[in-house]
Amino acid sequence: MNTNQPWLPPGKNCGLCGEDTCKSFLRAVNATQKSYDDCPFYRNSEGCCTESESKCSYGPVDVLGNDYDFILKPLPGEISARKIVLPFRGDMVDKLEIKAGDIVVGRPMGAGCPIPHVLQVIKADPVTGLLYTWVVGPKYSRDRDVKDVVAYHMVGFEGIAGHIRKEPTLGYRHTFLPGFCMMNLNHTGLVNMVLQKEEGPHIRIENILILASKE
């Protein structure tokens, strides 16, 4: 991408680019130590996030032909729906010094997923050991320092419900398809937050399991 195009980071000072502030990030870009692509909020000339799910298309059913209530999509300007995970050993956050911006890899054991996921950390809670993350995909683990937690509990997701067939309802267990799921398999979870936003229902869903069949 052309790093000379006029663009400014959002001023969140989130640190996910590896810099403390957006201003220091811009200084690093100007010094050719960073590129705009290092900012997860960077948008290309088409207005799409560089690693978002905006180019994805979805069929009416999952890979096994099962219906879903909705597809869980990213919050505005984000890479993927947020994924909340808990390493099997909660002290791994301290032991590996996991912090915002780190790339973490591990498999969501217990929920039924056979595939290790590559995650970018939004927030690491040293008290609970919870990691709030985006799913960023395997290419992020290449030529980068990766912290391997091996296995984790899949606690929940947070994002925007789209392609809605059944409206997300507080306290209801829904069948949904995470927009980033490489296997294109339905999941189920209990909705425990619904906020009506312009983009659609902003929901949090926990107690996650993969739904392999209708039986």
Rank of each mutant, 00 (worst) to 15 (best):
94 D>F: 08
59 G>K: 11
170 L>E: 09
157 F>G: 06
65 G>A: 00
146 V>A: 01
107 R>Y: 01
136 V>F: 06
172 Y>L: 03
104 V>Y: 00
64 L>W: 14
109 M>V: 15
162 G>T: 11
162 G>E: 13
89 R>T: 10
146 V>N: 03
66 N>K: 05
149 V>E: 00
87 P>S: 06
48 C>A: 12
82 R>G: 10
167 E>H: 14
51 E>W: 10
146 V>I: 10
174 H>Y: 03
170 L>P: 11
51 E>Y: 14
88 F>C: 07
63 V>W: 06
55 K>T: 14
118 V>F: 02
51 E>C: 12
118 V>N: 03
72 L>I: 06
96 L>I: 04
136 V>M: 04
160 I>E: 00
104 V>M: 00
77 G>R: 06
56 C>D: 10
71 I>A: 06
121 V>K: 09
174 H>E: 02
101 G>L: 00
98 I>S: 05
103 I>R: 11
91 D>C: 12
73 K>Y: 11
82 R>T: 14
142 R>H: 08
82 R>E: 12
75 L>A: 08
109 M>Y: 13
97 E>Y: 08
169 T>H: 06
167 E>R: 14
90 G>E: 11
135 V>E: 03
108 P>D: 01
104 V>W: 00
61 V>H: 05
109 M>L: 15
76 P>T: 01
144 R>N: 14
77 G>H: 04
118 V>K: 04
62 D>H: 05
115 I>V: 15
88 F>W: 10
156 G>N: 08
137 G>S: 05
167 E>A: 14
95 K>D: 14
163 H>F: 13
148 D>M: 02
82 R>M: 09
135 V>Q: 09
159 G>P: 12
161 A>Q: 03
81 A>G: 13
78 E>Q: 11
161 A>H: 04
161 A>L: 07
159 G>F: 04
115 I>C: 13
144 R>D: 01
157 F>K: 07
139 K>G: 09
67 D>H: 11
117 H>W: 12
92 M>H: 05
88 F>R: 12
150 V>P: 10
78 E>H: 09
75 L>E: 15
126 P>L: 00
138 P>D: 09
169 T>E: 05
69 D>I: 00
119 L>C: 11
129 G>H: 07
166 K>H: 13
100 A>L: 05
130 L>S: 06
93 V>S: 03
85 V>A: 05
109 M>C: 13
94 D>Y: 12
147 K>T: 09
114 P>M: 01
113 C>M: 08
94 D>R: 14
48 C>Q: 07
123 K>T: 03
103 I>C: 07
106 G>Q: 01
168 P>A: 00
145 D>T: 15
100 A>P: 15
106 G>T: 05
67 D>E: 08
133 T>N: 07
158 E>T: 05
116 P>K: 06
86 L>C: 12
82 R>D: 08
129 G>P: 15
84 I>S: 09
151 A>K: 11
135 V>G: 02
49 C>E: 10
84 I>L: 13
142 R>G: 13
54 S>A: 13
57 S>P: 15
96 L>Y: 02
127 V>D: 12
97 E>A: 14
113 C>P: 08
163 H>S: 08
147 K>A: 02
90 G>A: 07
108 P>K: 02
68 Y>L: 03
50 T>E: 08
154 M>L: 12
126 P>M: 02
77 G>F: 01
66 N>Y: 02
147 K>H: 04
109 M>H: 14
117 H>C: 11
70 F>Y: 09
171 G>I: 01
173 R>V: 02
117 H>A: 08
147 K>W: 02
104 V>K: 00
113 C>A: 11
143 D>N: 14
